[in-house]
Design a protein around this nucleic acid. Sequence first.
DNA 1: TTATTATATTATAATAATTATAAACTAATA
DNA 2: TATTAGTTTATAATTATTATAATATAATAA
Lengths: 131, 131
Amino acid sequence: MTLQRLAVLEFLEGNTNHPSVEEIYRNLKKKYPTLSQATIYTSLQVLRKTGEIQELSIRKEKTCFDPNPKPHHHFYCQECKKILDIEISCPVAEKQWVDGHKVKEVQAYFYGICNYCLKKTKNKRRIGGIT
Amino acid sequence: MTLQRLAVLEFLEGNTNHPSVEEIYRNLKKKYPTLSQATIYTSLQVLRKTGEIQELSIRKEKTCFDPNPKPHHHFYCQECKKILDIEISCPVAEKQWVDGHKVKEVQAYFYGICNYCLKKTKNKRRIGGIT
DNA sequence: TTATTATATTATAATAATTATAAACTAATA
DNA sequence: TATTAGTTTATAATTATTATAATATAATAA
């Protein structure tokens, strides 16, 4: 465990925003100006392989990372673009089998409009509309 | 619906392999040598938006497409790299709500070793081993 | 039919994420 | 101290995807 790798892990730990590589790099660069982008990539892959973090492909254009390596699902809000953790039980992840196939990892992505954005647009309608 | 778009749709229809953009392009190029890669991209996006096909981000490195637009899950075999359809009921997709968030789309990806590859390695062990 | 318009396709270039490579560095060990 | 292995850095290369502009096609109006 090197200084750089620790910095990546530390940054992720306190972070529930599921940052992308670019965000991680941009933020750590302030504190460690010598840091290179390639190091972020390799560090993230090492941390993923040792099971300390998990990788999300919820947004096609950029990969995001989650400091919680335990299997859980994710929600992507198409309005505010936030990624939220979803804690529901998943029979497939628990049993580790589906249709005779051995399951080692599960990634479930829900896309839609989050609670907060739903409320926001409802209020807007209320203010602008008749009621 | 243009000729090119129809060709893309036709190629996908008979195909349960969930081909990537590159595969689609390579195959259609034989029959339609004038076809361009950009057309494949735009055609696929048009077909996706009209709900005729669905897009899979199961492999980070390339996007794949499924002619079946109905919500269902997918399994990626880390051994043979095949993508298989998984037909199990998904409460979240059915209810369209989770934790107060409105769900419009669900993508669930299972990663592991498929039925077929499991049998293959078991047989190999049997032949090579003591039993 | 011809002119006009809108839309689709193509080819090319641009962008952006990621990976590969090689050199410099670090830390551990002989 | 010398050597080794592994890490970081900087740079270049690769690759998927998107944007752009020119061309082609089809649909409609005159």
